[in-house]
Amino acid sequence: MSGLGQGRADAVLVMGEALTDLVPDEDGTLRPRPGGAPANVASRLARLGVRTAFAGTLGDDGFGRRNEDRLRTAGVELDLCGRSSLPTALAVADPGPEGTRYDFHLRDTATFELSDVSDQLERFSVVYAGGLAAVVPPASEVVLATARAAADRSVLAVDPNVRTDRTLDPESSLRRLRELCALGHIVKVSDEDARRLWPGDTPEAPCRKLAAEGRLVLLTRGADGSSAFLPGDVHVSVPAVPVVVTSTIGAGDAFMAAVLAHLVRSGVLRGGGPAALTAAQAEEALRYAAAVAADVCGRAT
């Protein structure tokens, strides 16, 4: 993986979905807010000062226009973003003490009509893939093709962000996400993701295995902090930043964006790639990401 992304602009391409979350207020009223893990990552990256392009498709409805406004306001480049006459996919959030569950309305939407942008990868030092677009057809085929190309030409960052829904085949979805993780140079999983993707193992076991194969692997544990696993059986952990939690929606995406922003801005990816990071560099990235995620958790939705 040495030399990946060298000689390219310090820019990130984010591929995936921009959908709309319907989040309940205290009185149960559902309030729409722009969402989708990749769109969240793109917006946060741009706000953190990283040149970012979003390769998704926006619907021709009020939700799609609101998603576009959010991305543009953050400073995300949309020249690779498609437009469609179809509506925007919806995710109905159901927050609870164990996290947030979602009920999805995905079919026949613009959100998963993605275009192949593999011929544009030379413009970017880092490519992000993950989210629902990685498992919902027809987007899933495009995401996989782009990820395969990016694995050879750029630094590929993967966040499987495992989701379950009655319209998704769990076996096929998990198989696709495991393939994406195997392609990635940077892989971020939550402890819940790890248990679903590799049942029967502790969350740390697959992280160590992936890192031993030459990756930077990030494991988040919510209030219990996060860890980074590097080749050579090296790993570091940092605690979560204490915060009065208002909502955890988007915190994992903010964490991922912050790690990427820190690595891009610091220039450490220009050397031997993410696997060449030192423990100290990985710890610095984790601490920065923990602070950004805590800020998201402490804000009202």
Rank of each mutant, 00 (worst) to 15 (best):
M1L: 14
S2V: 15
L4H: 08
Q6C: 12
M15N: 03
L19D: 15
T20Q: 11
D25H: 09
G36N: 13
A39I: 13
A39Y: 08
S43D: 01
S43F: 00
L45P: 00
L48P: 00
G49F: 04
R51E: 07
R51V: 09
A55F: 02
G56L: 05
T57H: 05
T57F: 03
T57K: 02
T57P: 00
D61Y: 06
G62E: 07
F63D: 00
F63Q: 01
G64E: 06
L71G: 00
T73Q: 07
V76C: 01
V76A: 02
G82I: 07
S85T: 07
P87G: 09
G96L: 15
E98K: 13
T100R: 10
H105S: 06
L106K: 02
D108Y: 13
T111M: 09
E113I: 00
S125P: 08
S125G: 10
V127Q: 00
A134R: 03
A139R: 02
S140T: 15
V142L: 03
A145D: 01
T146W: 00
A150N: 03
S154P: 02
V155S: 05
V155N: 04
L156F: 09
V158L: 08
N161W: 03
V162L: 07
R163Q: 12
R166W: 13
S172F: 09
S173H: 07
L177H: 04
V187R: 02
V189N: 01
S190T: 04
W198D: 10
P203I: 08
P203V: 05
K209M: 10
L210I: 08
A211P: 10
R215F: 14
R221F: 04
D224F: 04
A228V: 14
G232Q: 06
V234E: 15
V234S: 13
V238W: 12
P242R: 00
V243E: 01
V245D: 13
V245G: 06
S247R: 05
T248S: 10
I249Q: 10
G250C: 14
G252W: 04
A258Y: 07
A258R: 03
A261N: 04
V264T: 02
R265W: 11
R270L: 14
L277G: 05
T278E: 12
T278G: 14
A279S: 15
A279I: 15
E284K: 09
A285L: 15
A289D: 07
A290H: 01
A293Q: 01
V296Y: 00
G298I: 10
